[in-house]
Design a protein around this nucleic acid. Structure first.
Lengths: 147, 147
DNA sequence: GTAATAAATATTGTGTGCAATTAAATTGTT
DNA sequence: AACAATTTAATTGCACACAATATTTATTAC
């Protein structure tokens, strides 16, 4: 057995397990809103900036059209947003929240509060530091594949 | 706009993005071995402990049979392992690496070295600390859903 | 101004993840 | 022993991720 291959020593597995555990914590909070976790992330972006393109959304979430197109179609048929070709540049598709989609932000607003109640420090100093470390790591990892 | 809903403030998104970025770094290193990233993780466990059950593997990876059964079938048809019902308890399925599956460990062994070369500290103190923090977080998150 | 190139999205196909259900075997209880 | 409850995998169905390709539109070269 090669020690450098032990599962529990792998940063990659620690990330993978933590990310999935996090998703599972969100899932019951999102179910009442009829959202999946990636759909929620997409809406976080749209609540910040409505009327952006699929490309811009993909940049924020680090997801490509292969993932976003069907996801956005589902949100569209749920009545939360509309997709329409840009008139300036007909290659682009603009995403606009509907009133329903905008209104959902009110219900989503309680989620972070619920989580910090449940986990104490979840919104605090410690978690902000971890978050920043992870963002740094992400940049480092992404930088390596595009020299 | 509600500040507590900003994407970049969410620990959950930092995790999600980092985990996917990590997977993408591994992907080109695993492709020559004919492995996907979750398949690699499963093999990490099996190189540590051959002949375990699907249940035990699922406990280590935090994955259920819905994910593992098809994944293991693919590894079986790739000739890396065999699945057989336990004679002691016919509910269980034992997983045994083939010679090919065992031999693959040699090729996989260079992956951690490649990564620490590329990222400097990737195998060092700093990353070990991040890894432990993430494992703690995972335990915290998992504990909350099963009181 | 047209041909080549690039950019944005959509489509296709494969492989996860995971909830929910099913099926079979084992264990516990009476 | 008989039967209920539990355990273990497999199956089904849905929603991502993502590579690869196709399609449409815009930009660049000439």
């Amino acid at each position: 057995m090669k020690p450098q291959l032990q599962l529990d020593r792998q940063l990659c597995f620690a990330l993978y397990a933590a990310s999935r555990a996090m998703t599972q914590v969100y899932q019951p909070l999102l179910a009442p809103l009829g959202l999946t976790y990636p759909q929620y992330l997409a809406l976080l972006v749209l609540w910040e900036q409505d009327g952006i393109t699929v490309k811009r959304l993909g940049e924020r979430l680090q997801l490509d059209s292969g993932t976003l197109t069907p996801l956005l179609k589902r949100l569209e048929s749920a009545g939360l947003l509309q997709r329409q070709r840009s008139k300036d540049d007909e290659r682009s598709v603009l995403i606009h929240l509907t009133q329903t989609g905008k209104a959902l932000e009110e219900q989503a607003a309680v989620i972070p509060a619920t989580l910090s109640c449940r986990f104490g420090d979840a919104g605090g100093e410690h978690s902000a530091q971890l978050r920043d470390t992870l963002h740094q790591l992400t940049r480092l990892l992404q930088g390596s594949s595009q020299p």
